[in-house]
Amino acid sequence: MQKVYARPAWCMNCHLCEVNCIIAHSRSRDLFRAYKRENLRGTARVIVEERLPLSVAVQCRHCDDPICVAGCISGAMVKDPATGIVYCQEDKCVGCWTCVAGCPYGAIRPGEKNGRPVPLKCDLCRETGEPACVAGCPNRALVWEERGAGA
């Protein structure tokens, strides 16, 4: 399947992927409103890890047999059989965080939206096309591509 791959050699630690992720998952799709009105600072679904000068963006790998899906007690977390995208049906999530304990990449964080639990994880911007982190990466340190089976 087509996934986002990080190319750490090209990452300059600008964190724009996180910002663009937050905007893409906001109601307003606007940076100012997302941060100041919707209070979404810190809710990125991609995490830029730093060991300067090294930095790299980490996000869900959309596993073939995702342990977050296997462990989900409510059936909220699913893998779309057609696209392979692993995503959470947020209205079904109860915030037990078994997915957080399961994810082998640490790519799911416990979050909250309007008083409801939300697992903060990459959904490859499944409703909009090209993932916002890739679209906004100024140095192609993130690429969205098909690398074949097992990749």
Partner: peptide, 19 residues
């Protein structure tokens, strides 16, 4: 506080990012 993939040996985190 920033424990993550980059805490692991380089060949390990490179492999994981490629998965």
């Amino acid at each position: 506080p920033d424990f993550g993939l980059l805490s692991l040996p380089e060949e390990v985190w490179r492999q994981r990012l490629a998965e």
